[in-house]
Nucleic acid binder design. Structure first.
Length: 558
DNA sequence: GCCGTTTTCGGCCCGACTGTTTTCAGTCG
């Protein structure tokens, strides 16, 4: 049992208890434990072996015994029992925006709805509006929500699948017989949402690889096994496919398995030409075709072939180009790590600066800082900054943009800060005109440096809010505002396409982690992938600059 | 169900928004 599986099980228990209207604090306890386990540094099975389970915050006597049962037996009796007490489609329905536990309970009790399909049918038949407290708008938003989920139903975020892929890849590479191995397909191209996990392996002895794979604990089921090819499902029903090739076939095989289909179709309209089998690297293959090497992230038929032919591909940004991070949260608001820990983690990543941008006061649940606490935080930062020579915190905020476009701090407060990220966290439903004007007012504000997660989308969960993007980008370019690529794998906001469009208009980009705990600083990896997919080079990204350059840029822009 | 410099019981992030009401319940962040 992995950390994620155990966290998910505890979360499901919380969902069922909530549906059953159990004690809210008991429910909260399960969620808290699930959250801690999800974010653990160490493998929970290791903590179990060492007898250290009670070191996990939020894990007490009762939950500890449940974790032990899960690790020892692979299942949990009380969870199995709870599952029989509720409609089987319950957890699926919770994913619909605006539909919570209470709504599901009413739908179940009054209409007998037990899953998403039945709910959609009830909405289409206008039966939901007959229920107390629900009307035509609720009905409409349920239909919309289900349609959105259907769209994504077969996809998982890169942030969820990539770590599983890397683990499986490492397991295969660890084998002496394996000469080379790589992720392939959409996961190698770094798409934000992926349907399956593809791995290409080079080995002389195929049978040995098959044998090794059959011992991989991450595999839930093998559904097919033909020559050179194994497929099935990993944990959480993620489909996987492993292609086993002779070392001489590996390079071309990897290239073809990486795609995209559109990229390959443009390259080879009448089939793969002879002669490529002898290539020993992907750059060789492209050279053979008269093209510069095209990195996997660009292989989407978005003009990369023309650029490669003309020698005009950009030099893409790399993780090592970043010198700092301009958006993260500490224990002062809703972050889980203290300032000192964040500083050490950022230094370990080779950064020379990290902007602390906790929430502003109006975001009460996130422990938003009022002006007094912001000032107190500033004093702690001053103190900590004295201990490092090669690193410093920048003082910042993620200030809330109110419904009317005004900001949660006054100008005087904002002027004193090094970095002002302004973001929308409320009123996602405003109409296009109002939402656009709201954002534009913030963009035009002299004290705002960066707009955080511009579109507000959450992959698989929430569509972006309505915006006139042309107007927003035009204003951003004119105001010299920086747009953020928020690296959280559930956001990746702005997306690659928008990032490329912004870059073409001369808008600078900041690649930020929006970390809420020290380990999440490493989520920056996903932002880098996203930026590469948006054709961004080092020069397009503000936080590739030195500390002095970034501070100077932000000051001059005011 | 967890936790403790308010410690073995009694408390446990809270306010805004939405859709439905006509004063509020549910959801969300």
């Amino acid at each position: 049992m992995t950390n994620r599986e155990i966290a998910r099980t505890l979360d499901h228990i919380a969902d069922i208890l909530q549906f059953q209207e159990e004690n809210p604090f008991k429910i909260k306890a399960y969620r808290q434990a699930a959250n801690s386990i999800y974010h653990l540094d160490e493998d929970i099975a290791y903590l179990y072996e060492k007898g250290r389970l009670d070191e996990i915050p939020g894990v007490g006597k009762s939950i500890k015994s449940k974790i032990e049962e899960l690790i020892e037996k692979g299942s949990l009796e009380c969870y199995e029992r709870l599952l029989t007490e509720v409609p089987p489609g319950l957890l699926d329905m919770l994913a619909i925006p605006g539909v919570g536990h209470k709504t599901i309970r009413v739908l179940y009790e009054q209409l007998g709805v037990t899953n998403r399909d039945e709910l959609l049918q009830a909405a289409q038949e206008k039966r939901i509006r007959l229920l107390p407290g629900m009307g035509s708008k609720t009905e409409f938003s349920i239909i919309k929500g289900i349609e959105m989920l259907e769209q994504y139903s077969q996809k998982n975020t890169l942030g969820f699948v990539l770590p599983m892929g890397q683990k499986m890849l490492a397991f295969l590479k660890d084998m002496e017989n394996v000469k080379a191995a790589s992720l392939a397909g959409s996961i190698r191209r770094g798409r934000p949402l992926v349907t399956d996990l593809d791995i290409v392996v080079a080995a002389d002895d195929e049978a040995a690889v098959r044998c090794r794979l059959s011992h991989y604990r991450g595999i839930k089921q093998i559904t097919g096994s033909e020559a050179g090819h194994i497929h099935g499902f990993l944990q959480f029903n993620i489909p996987f496919e492993v292609i086993i090739l002779k070392p001489g076939e590996y390079c071309l095989g990897l290239f073809l398995s990486t795609g995209s289909k559109q990229h390959l179709a443009r390259l080879f309209p009448v089939g793969t030409p002879a002669g490529l089998e002898s290539c020993r690297s992907e750059p060789d293959i492209y050279a053979n075709l008269g093209l510069d090497f095209i990195p996997p992230e660009l292989r989407e038929d978005q003009g990369e072939l023309e650029a490669a032919a003309a020698g005009e591909l950009p030099v893409l940004i790399e993780r090592g180009d970043l010198q700092g991070d301009l958006h993260c949260h500490s224990g002062w608001s809703d972050g889980a790590s203290q300032l000192a820990e964040l500083g050490e983690a950022a230094r370990d990543m080779g950064y020379s600066y990290l902007a602390i941008t906790d929430h502003s006061g109006s975001l009460a649940i996130s422990g938003g800082l009022n002006q007094e606490r912001l000032a107190a935080q500033g004093r702690e930062i001053d103190q900590l900054n004295q201990q490092w020579e090669d690193f410093m915190f920048l003082k910042g905020t993620e200030v809330d943009i109110f419904r009317d476009g005004s900001l949660d701090y006054d100008a005087e407060t904002l002027e004193k800060l090094d970095v002002v990220v302004a973001s929308i966290h409320t009123c996602f439903q405003l109409d296009r005109e109002k939402q656009t004007q709201r954002l534009i007012q913030a963009i035009k504000d002299d004290n705002v440096d960066i707009i955080g997660h511009l579109t507000g989308r959450l992959l698989n969960r929430r569509p972006p809010y309505e915006l006139d993007m042309e107007e927003v980008l035009a204003t951003a370019a004119k105001s010299k505002i920086i747009l953020e690529i928020n690296s959280h794998p559930d956001r990746l906001d702005i997306d690659a396409q928008l990032a490329r469009q912004a870059r073409d208009m001369g808008i600078k980009i900041a690649i930020n982690s929006d970390a809420h705990l020290k380990n999440d600083l490493r989520l920056i990896h996903y932002g880098i992938i996203n930026a590469r997919r948006g054709w961004l080079g080092k020069e397009d990204v503000i936080n590739t600059g030195s500390r002095e350059a970034v501070i100077a840029y932000l000051k001059n822009n005011e």
